[in-house]
């Protein structure tokens, strides 16, 4: 199941039938999987966060606009990269989308090479973000397996405190502290103290 969802899909949302089907045809000729929607709401209803891919989105549409869809996705914490396609005179909207973290822009009509470059860039970004999130999940799961005492030791370790000081602060023998310390390294899977520091920082910044 997860292997299927990791096969990326290029989602297209454009209210104009001719733009939508021509874009689908072009993506097919590029050998890319795609799925097209006529309205932002339809995409949102079908949106599956586990599905790898990117979104090619028309800025200006009746009903929910491309910008509004982007905001909805942001609210849901969606990571799907968005490539906006803009028509004539949509520059102010494009700027607004950029401020909300739009990934890329393409002005209609566009060169197929520009489209494929942006899609590949977006798909690479999606894969990278997903890999980082999975890594965070793994680290978090490992750190969650620490006992409360081991977590105290971890907190002191990442501050760079020597064993002797840690033993004193936690009021345990140095021998006991060394056992805790070994457990922390073993459970976290960190090869060095430096890696352990990086892991805890990654996890704390991503939440």
């Amino acid at each position: 199941m997860s292997t299927k969802k990791s096969h990326p899909i290029v989602f297209v949302v454009d209210d104009d039938e001719s733009v939508r089907s021509s874009l689908g045809f072009l993506l097919k000729s590029m050998g890319l999987n795609h799925q097209a929607f006529a309205a932002a709401g339809d995409f949102l209803a079908a949106y599956d966060p586990a599905q790898h891919g990117c979104l090619v989105l028309d800025v200006r549409m009746p009903g929910m606009s491309g910008i509004e869809l982007q905001q909805q996705l942001n609210l849901r914490g969606a990571i799907i990269p968005v490539i906006f396609i803009t028509g004539h005179g949509d520059i102010p909207m494009a700027v607004e989308a950029m401020q909300h973290g739009a990934h890329e822009f393409l002005e209609k009509p566009f060169r197929d090479q520009d489209l494929i470059d942006r899609i590949q860039h977006a798909l690479a970004k999606d894969a990278k973000t997903r890999a980082a999130l999975e890594e965070h999940d793994r680290i978090r799961a490992r750190l969650a397996s620490l006992t409360p005492r081991e977590r105290e030791v971890l907190a002191l370790m990442v501050q760079g405190k020597p064993n002797k000081i840690m033993a004193y602060e936690l009021d345990v023998s140095q021998r006991t502290l060394e056992i805790h310390r070994a457990r922390v390294m073993e459970k976290s899977g960190a090869a060095s103290l430096a890696e352990l520091v990086r892991m805890t920082m990654d996890v704390s910044t991503s939440t």
């Binding site: 089907s21 021509s22 028509g87 004539h88 009509p109 566009f110 197929d112």
Partner: peptide, 25 residues
């Protein structure tokens, strides 16, 4: 005219997309 320019972009985009797809095919 602003609306028309925007509206003209739609068929032009479709034409560009189809032509480039043909080239690839």
């Amino acid at each position: 005219a602003a609306g028309v320019a925007h509206e003209l972009n739609q068929p032009l985009t479709a034409i560009a997309n189809y032509a480039q797809a043909c080239d690839r095919l």
